[in-house]
């Protein structure tokens, strides 16, 4: 019974070395795959690049001693750029194991790392100066749950949240008095977001009801607003739909009266690690529950708050 068969002529041999000698003497070829070579050194290089996982210790030692291992150029040609850098002296299993361990380490760090879990709302960076922020529903200190929302009126994803999720949050959790919703405007997307946030702050200083109406207006008309038109449309909306002095608000925007208030929200967003809008920080029973990024559905918010 033979365990080693020539890939070219089918002759059988009882040992790998016998097969190797036959393939080379009779065919000038590799005994693993039948590829032909002009000289032994080329064959050994082929073993080390293509069949390294199949080599016996004896064959590997023989090949390495004859050709002195692979040059970087040879690894680049046969194993590609990743192999040329990563496979230096490593077998495929070692590289694979290293990759799995590396990915596992990254995943573990991502899952176990980070901060904020269980932290009190009063200590969380997202909730600094919470008492001065526009709030719907009960006071954050009295509510079962609190959502602190970092949004930009010029952000399309924030507009999607306003359309698809906020109405249900308002009707099922905020209006019944279970959840407090706190808005923090940060102008980080399009340029017109900056005067819009200043206008929102100036409006809130005069009327909370007008503030929420203006916010909804910005999201509703977002596609039609730009840096050249934002002050005009703001003035028109406030004059037509609210009792707020529209000219005073526009004047506040131009003089940046509320710049400090906007900067407080921007600093809070940086301290809390906000990387984009909309970003929401959820607190349940006064303790931090989780951070939600993007215009996620009502069910994500409700279930994360345990409601």
């Amino acid at each position: 019974m033979t365990d080693h068969t020539c890939p070219i002529c089918g002759a059988g041999f009882t040992s790998e070395s016998g097969l190797d000698d036959h393939c080379w003497d009779a065919h000038g070829a590799c005994h693993y795959c039948g590829t032909e070579f002009e000289d032994r050194n080329a064959l050994y290089t082929h073993w080390l690049t293509v069949h390294e996982d199949s080599l016996s210790n004896e064959a590997r030692a023989r090949a390495t001693s004859e050709v002195g291992g692979l040059t970087f150029r040879e690894r680049l040609a046969h194993q590609g750029p990743v192999g040329a850098v990563a496979n230096i002296g490593l077998s495929r299993r070692q590289v694979l194991l290293g990759g799995v361990l590396g990915l596992g380490g990254v995943a573990g760090a991502a899952l176990l790392g980070g901060s904020g879990g269980g932290k009190s709302m009063t200590e969380h960076a997202a909730a600094t100066s919470l008492g001065t922020q526009p709030t719907l529903g009960p006071s954050p200190s009295a509510a079962e749950g609190t959502i602190v929302a970092f949004e930009d009126p010029s952000c399309p994803a924030c507009a999607r949240f306003e359309r698809s999720t906020f109405p249900q949050l308002k009707s099922e959790l905020i209006d019944p008095g279970r959840v407090s919703f706190v808005f923090r405007g940060i102008p980080v997307v399009y340029p017109w977001g900056d005067p819009a946030v200043l206008a929102l702050e100036a409006t809130y200083n005069r009327s909370a009801e007008a503030f929420w109406g203006l916010k909804a207006f910005y999201y509703r008309e977002q596609a039609n607003i730009g840096i050249e038109t934002v002050q005009e449309v703001t003035s028109q909306y406030l004059a037509d739909q609210t009792d707020v002095d529209a000219d005073a608000v526009v004047s506040d925007v131009q003089s940046e009266t509320s710049r400090d208030a906007v900067d407080v929200d921007l600093q809070a967003s940086r301290d809390a690690g906000v990387r984009g809008t909309p970003t929401f920080f959820l607190f349940s029973g006064g303790s931090f529950a989780t951070e939600i990024v993007g215009p996620q559905s009502y069910d994500v918010f409700a279930n994360s708050l345990g409601m």
Binding site: A289, T290, I292
Partner: peptide, 28 residues
């Protein structure tokens, strides 16, 4: 990758019912 916090704090690390955690996961 956008919501590692949800994975860590809600899906894996909270005491919420498994049904709630499954809902949050799927809705992402």
């Amino acid at each position: 990758s956008r919501n590692v916090a949800i994975l860590r704090q809600i899906v894996l690390g909270s005491s919420l019912p498994w049904g709630s955690r499954a809902t949050v996961t799927v809705e992402l």
